[in-house]
Design a binder for these strands. Structure first.
Lengths: 195, 195
DNA sequence: CCCGGTGCTCAACAGGTGTTTAACTTGGAT
DNA sequence: ATCCAAGTTAAACACCTGTTGAGCACCGGG
């Protein structure tokens, strides 16, 4: 029963190429456009090859998600070590590629249980790490928790960046300047720019 | 050329039922699950009937979107006339059904131009109306624009409610209490509860 | 009484999808 | 020189999709 078939190695260049294509497809046309046949044809290979590396399509999505999540985690970790860590974190959050993928996966998770589980796991870990980092930074800066708690800044950045990026993608930008100012006024107070 | 086929009346009960089913499907399984055949089978009718009311699938999506958008607009307009209008607006924004649909359509718009156009139009009108209402309310309450501008409150509510509802839907709620407090602390100041 | 329109179905076309099975090719180790 | 394993393909199965053209059943107005 269920003699598992051969599966391609994780370090294969082709595998990476397939993931790159799937990622671009997801950002350009949404998760519904991603599938073994579509990815295969864009890569100029046979659909069966996609299944050689990703036996079922959920495996493709999961691999894509994990790769993106780990990159994002690493970028945020690096941000906490920057000279102005809060600004660096905000910059990472405002990256259209990273946050765009997160948005797409959030939509996908609504009807793919395997993705949902992974999303929640990573989401909680990510939030925990961010909050811990901001807690240290706030202690350093002497931020009054009555003004803003670490959790609040983290969720504020997350919510605003997601909305701004989603809306920018469809060409809606009414009030975006004001929205950014919510976070940036806070940043100006605790991490003032040289100018 | 293009002899347009017969199209069912807008006031038909069946048409409304089809829209209701499409809406539930969209909320439960995401936009990718919505289509003429799927909707037809859930309604227990022939797929051709769906095309009788909605010649092509985009028509279904557009009708669904317009209905939802108008309902949402009306609810928000009613909220501005409530005794505590800011609280009422926040309550409307935090309704999972309405905001859930908005989220799903935002994802859909990325690869359906017709939807995108409609979404931007409605989005801008909605935001404008909300901002005007809040401007009047702020003038009434004497809110210092240094503390918060009307636009900022509108976008803050929108961004936070979208994120909270999206995440709740997949079972991620870390820090949500703190996030809600960002808005609710402001509400407490200007629209204090009786207790 | 029949005529026209409305609601609805049947059956099909044309295409897309995920997935599997077997087999081919190629390059390195033995 | 040969054997094996990895990368890759061709072909097919089974299914789901949007969409259409013709035609059915019914019902109210002439």
């Amino acid at each position: 029963m269920a003699t598992r078939r051969r599966v391609g190695s994780t370090s294969s260049e082709t595998r990476t190429r397939l993931l790159d294509i799937a990622e671009r497809l997801m950002l350009d046309e949404g998760y519904a456009a991603v599938g073994s046949r579509r990815v295969a044809s864009l890569a100029g290979v046979n659909p069966a090859l996609v299944h050689y590396y990703f036996p079922v399509t959920d495996d493709l999505f999961l691999a894509l998600y994990r790769r993106g999540a780990e990159r994002m985690l690493e970028r945020h970790r690096a941000a906490t070590e920057a000279p102005q860590p809060l600004r660096a974190m905000w910059k990472v959050a405002m990256d259209p590629r990273g946050t765009g993928l997160v948005n797409e996966f959030a939509a996908l998770a609504s009807h793919r249980k395997a993705i949902q589980v992974e999303l929640v796991q990573y989401g909680e870990e990510h939030r925990r790490l961010m909050t811990e980092a901001v807690t240290r930074i706030f202690a350093d800066y002497g931020v009054d928790p009555e003004e803003m708690t670490p959790t609040q800044l983290v969720l504020l950045m997350t919510a605003l960046s997601r909305m701004l990026i989603t809306e920018d993608a469809i060409g809606l930008s009414l009030g975006h300047g004001d929205a950014r100012a919510i976070v940036e006024r806070f940043l100006d107070r605790y991490e003032p720019l040289p100018g």
